[in-house]
Write a protein that binds this DNA or RNA. Sequence first.
DNA 1: TGTTTTAACCTGTCGAACAAGTCAAGATCT
DNA 2: AGATCTTGACTTGTTCGACAGGTTAAAACA
Lengths: 243, 243
Amino acid sequence: MPRLASTISTTATEPSRLPDRIYEEILEQIVSGKFSVGDRLPSENQIGTEYKVSRAVVREALSRLAADGVVVSRQGAGTFVHRIPGREFLRLAPIGGIADLMRCFEFRIALEGEAAYLAAQRRTDENLAAIEDAFKRLEEANIAGEVGVELDISYHVAIARASRNNLFMQTLDALAVHTFNGMNITRNLSLTSNRKRLVLVQEEHRRILEAIRVGDEDLARREMRTHIDNARHRALGASVEPE
Amino acid sequence: MPRLASTISTTATEPSRLPDRIYEEILEQIVSGKFSVGDRLPSENQIGTEYKVSRAVVREALSRLAADGVVVSRQGAGTFVHRIPGREFLRLAPIGGIADLMRCFEFRIALEGEAAYLAAQRRTDENLAAIEDAFKRLEEANIAGEVGVELDISYHVAIARASRNNLFMQTLDALAVHTFNGMNITRNLSLTSNRKRLVLVQEEHRRILEAIRVGDEDLARREMRTHIDNARHRALGASVEPE
DNA sequence: TGTTTTAACCTGTCGAACAAGTCAAGATCT
DNA sequence: AGATCTTGACTTGTTCGACAGGTTAAAACA
């Protein structure tokens, strides 16, 4: 049975009420993987001793975690981990052939279009810097003549992150293999058949980035949807017509 | 200054822990309009006296309401109403509080809007019949004064199915499980008190259904997005601007 | 060996006490 | 007379101890 850490975090953003601190400490321990679903937490008295707070404070924190569905308490037995937030809520079945790939593009148009909209609305300077960094790395891969699929994914993930809604991030993660295949096709073909195409793709990336930079939400959404729709056509043009 | 009601609800579905009961009682009072934003609640001791519970129980309940953003407590001054959620909030019993609920709504607007678009484009006669069946069942539940979360989900799932893209289905299915896992379904009864709202929601459902029937893709998307956005506002209600 | 009992431990609740903070009324100053 | 300061009552935040009700594993019993 893992023990909770024995000191309260001293980061500058910690809340001022003790129950709020203990809530976040315990939550962090659970999210970071120290406990699995079904594991029993230390007793209220033990937590109070470790963190040098009274049992009432611990109870408030645990009460909130219970309300969040993260733990369940059973009188006499203890408090158990019930659900770990932030863990992936979605696992997608493996895709089949071309038709599935097309469906994946279609899904990404909805998902990433909206993520770009929210990114334009909410991005922080850090978020923007991460997108710019990914864009720059893509630029370098283009110049070096490398495929850069993973860099392309990084660019898209940075935008999903800037949406500041983890559901978008997690869904994109679940789509990773599907996304990889789609990007792999389009970037390989662009490399081998037409360098002009890479320039075009990067221009689309640049347009999305600019819309997010200036905070034009509708434009960001539109540019992202167009970009993925174009990618769909690029992949489609390279393959046999689907059923 | 209005006083809280002096008895604990005796409905069959009340939670078993006292702090949970007090939480719901106070929340119900706030949602039902007994307090306005900025109003001060009775003191902890007063609430404890009225409900015949100890102050520790009251504190746990208020701590949760504070975490939901519904109240703010100032040491020495009292506890004040900060935000009044809509009635829908009572039903949804957000896991992780208001912020998580908002993220979920946001995500659904993106995905279900697009699913409705594709459903309008692609639905078969069978798909349409399934949506109509779900709609009819919702109608019957409304007439009978029952509220079926599962029926509502069924309606939305039937539309996602008509998109004929399994990624939408899988994702919304996972989201429903994620949202309702551990959800407190005990507040369904609160919804029966507002028939006007049920009529309004069902009209929105009907509009989506019609758009899908006639194959108007953009209208279907728009109506679905509006429907979920409205649901968001019904849940979150009027509020003081967040920090 | 299977069943029952028991003791240690756990969460749920209560109540008292003290610390820190708020705020309005009264006292004091200009 | 108006502005400022002081004070006391009240409030929330936290600690502590006690008891009630429940769990569970070990010990006792048949």
